[in-house]
Design a protein around this nucleic acid. Structure first.
Length: 303
RNA sequence: GGAGGGGUUGGGGAGCGGUCAAACCCAGCAGACUGUAAAUCUGCCGCCUCGUGCUUCGAAGGUUCGAAUCCUUCCCCCUCCA
């Protein structure tokens, strides 16, 4: 795992040539078909030669979640073991990794009707009032959630309305549990960090400009034309895609959009680093010339 | 040369005699994270020996108990007329 733009994909491909591994992507955006350029997805040719699990498994108008990811990765990992291959999980979606390692409570799903209703209520009444409502129905959750945190307030209310039971109660009754397959496996957690912070910032800028040159704007236009798509779709909220949508919607100039895209990518990388810093049992490696052999040794020693 | 407008803490930009180390936005830094997570949210953001402390609002003087705010001169920038 590691922040965006440190070279995880290249490393995985290199390892694939030397080891008996299955590459499994841990990436909340690469799961989407057609989100190619902006998600930094490997090219079709590369994917053909070096297959990745959990890429292109959803249409751009679909939603995904941490728990669906849990189910999908477990399937992939199991499949790798069955074919006597080492599963190599590669990606930057830290919460997916986090729940895979630390477990997640089993919670009921909330149907889209209720979610829509809650969303409309939020727009009508505003966060403040909805937070007060949450305090009434689920005091325990409300103390854990900040009064401005729209998304988490929404979720807690949704669960309550859908099931009649408080989210906090669900969580208390269904404690986090790591999947057996994972807890029984010998897990090596490797974090790749950039060798030089300023250089990494520069790389991110170059990378984003490169995406624009490669046709990111056209890619987004094409995606938005698909049925059921709008800039509000979950997939279009991700870094880069959101900014291009803003530009296409006339919110900003091309140059502003590029700046915003670069900044959001940098901020993303920063948040990813924040996750890694407090991560237990993690091996930090710098992205330098010995990275490949270090990772390879770690895998061979532990398999 | 003439007439206006302006120079504010990294950038943008409020403030126009005291409640101003100076709103707000951006950038930056640190952090949180249980089914949207590339999401959402929080804190910090002149300096220090952390105090009714120190130095800041183009520069230098002045008025005033008190100035980023008023006056004078100077230096820049922009617009318009020549």
């Amino acid at each position: 795992m590691g922040p965006t733009g440190v070279g995880k994909t290249d490393l995985a491909i290199e390892l694939y040539q030397d080891l008996v591994i299955n590459i499994i992507s841990v990436d909340s955006v690469q799961v989407y078909k057609h989100l190619n350029i902006g998600s930094g997805k490997p090219s079709t040719d590369v994917l053909k030669k070096y297959p990745h699990d959990l890429i292109d498994i959803l249409k751009p108008n679909e939603s995904y979640s941490t728990s669906q990811f849990q189910d999908d990765v477990i399937d992939s990992v199991r499949n790798a073991f069955q074919t006597k291959r080492i599963p190599l999980l590669v990606g930057g979606t830290m919460m997916y990794f986090h729940h895979l390692v630390n477990g997640i409570s089993k919670l009921p799903s909330v149907d889209s009707q209720i979610r829509l209703r809650v969303k409309e209520e939020f727009e009508e009444k505003g966060v403040h009032e909805m937070y007060k409502y949450l305090e009434k129905i689920d005091k325990n959750s409300s103390t854990k959630i900040h009064q401005n945190d729209t998304q988490r307030i929404k979720r807690a209310i949704e669960v309550f309305l859908a099931t009649g039971k408080e989210l906090s109660k669900w969580q208390a009754e269904n404690k986090k549990e790591t999947n057996q397959l994972i807890s029984e496996s010998h897990l090596i957690q490797i974090a790749i960090k950039p060798q030089n912070k300023d250089l990494h910032r520069e790389n991110i800028a170059k990378r984003f400009k490169g995406m624009i040159d490669a046709g990111l704007i056209e890619e987004v236009e094409g995606i938005l034309e698909r049925k059921g798509m709008s800039p509000n779709s979950q997939s279009m909220k991700s870094v880069g895609y959101r900014q291009v949508c803003e530009y296409l919607g006339g919110d900003c100039s091309l140059d502003d959009m590029i700046d915003r895209g670069i900044n959001s990518t940098r901020q993303l990388a920063k948040r990813q680093m924040t996750w890694m810093r407090s991560w237990d049992n993690i091996i930090f490696l710098e992205n330098n010339s010995s990275l490949f052999s270090s990772v390879k040794d770690l895998i061979l020693k532990n398999s």
